[in-house]
């Protein structure tokens, strides 16, 4: 069943277009990574899907309803981000006690166990938590709601290394036990690659591709070898990335296709994370060129 259906979704803010033209569909029971560079529109897209902000034009449907101001979407979806806030008069324990009233499928056991595991203080106020602990608490809250559509916006921001890997593990385990639609935005694709089934790459408010992780890994190949040979091989092809390694050798990334084997030129696979980075790079040259 289709959980999210976006057709030509646009979102304009006063001085900029955050989303230019987003069209994609998300089936249920999949973990999808929403990948994009800073300012690509990831957060805006998630906020539209959560019903916090209204689309400027186009069509957006979550559970076949427009999410904006919709009670059904609100009851069955949650957006976990660093702007989540809870009343100052409630302690963390109070918040966990209130939640089951709102979320019918709230998993109190999971919430308590995770809460204990991460050693959060039940008497603490949400606003007083450190950045990492706040992110951890929000994550616990998001997972425990068991919402059919669970969205995380940069969930690991502020978490330390240990908590990050625990978080990914907890997410995966809970997902296997209770499959649902999970959408995670991040710019650290490499570190959560093992979780994802699909990747939705957006850039400058547009969808670049929406493919399975396997397809993304097969998307491109890298050629490395003597400059003249590599240039000959890649002539006329769409070059995604190029780097002069030294005066003789060059590294070029192109779309995957059958290439003749040439002595001296090595062919490497390109990781999904690098594919996403190269595809969304619209600069000529790298940071090194700034300092020339």
């Amino acid at each position: 069943m289709t959980v999210i259906d976006c057709q030509n979704l646009k979102k304009r803010y006063k001085r900029m277009n955050a989303l230019e033209d987003i069209t994609f569909q998300l089936e249920d029971q999949k973990i999808t990574g929403l990948i994009g560079r800073n300012g690509a529109g990831k957060t805006t897209l998630l906020k539209v899907l959560a019903g916090f902000i209204r689309e400027s034009s186009g069509d957006v449907k979550v559970f076949s309803n427009n999410p904006y101001n919709n009670l059904r979407v609100s009851a069955n979806s949650i957006l976990v981000d660093d702007q989540m806030s809870f009343p100052d008069s409630l302690t963390l324990a109070d918040i966990l006690e209130t939640a089951p009233d709102f979320y019918k499928r709230w998993d109190a056991e999971l919430a308590t166990n995770l809460f204990r595991y991460f050693r959060l203080n039940p008497k603490q106020l949400h606003a007083r938590l450190s950045k990492g602990n706040k992110a951890t608490f929000n994550m616990i809250f998001g997972l425990s709601t068991r919402c059919e559509l669970t969205m995380f916006d940069e969930p690991t921001n502020g978490m330390d290394e240990a908590v990050r890997s625990d978080f990914y593990r907890a997410l995966l385990k809970d997902y296997i036990a209770h499959p649902r639609t999970i959408l995670i935005s991040s710019h650290h694709l490499a570190e959560m690659e093992h979780l994802l089934e699909d990747i939705l790459l957006i850039h400058k408010g547009k969808v670049v591709f929406h493919q399975s992780l396997e397809e993304v890994k097969e998307y491109a190949v890298a050629l490395q070898g003597p400059t003249n040979l590599v240039e000959k091989m890649t002539a006329g092809k769409e070059i995604l990335h190029t780097k002069q390694l030294d005066s003789q050798r060059k590294y070029v990334v192109i779309r995957r296709e059958d290439l003749p084997l040439i002595e001296g030129v090595m062919i490497y696979p390109v990781s999904a994370s690098d594919v996403c980075m190269y595809v969304t790079d619209d600069r000529k040259g790298g940071i090194d060129d700034v300092f020339k």
């Binding site: 959980v3 029971q29 559970f63 009670l71 059904r72 009851a75 069955n76 979320y103 019918k104 499928r105």
Partner: peptide, 9 residues
């Protein structure tokens, strides 16, 4: 897929 339906009330 199970969707919980909450009424306004």
């Amino acid at each position: 897929m199970f969707l919980s339906n909450s009424t306004l009330g």
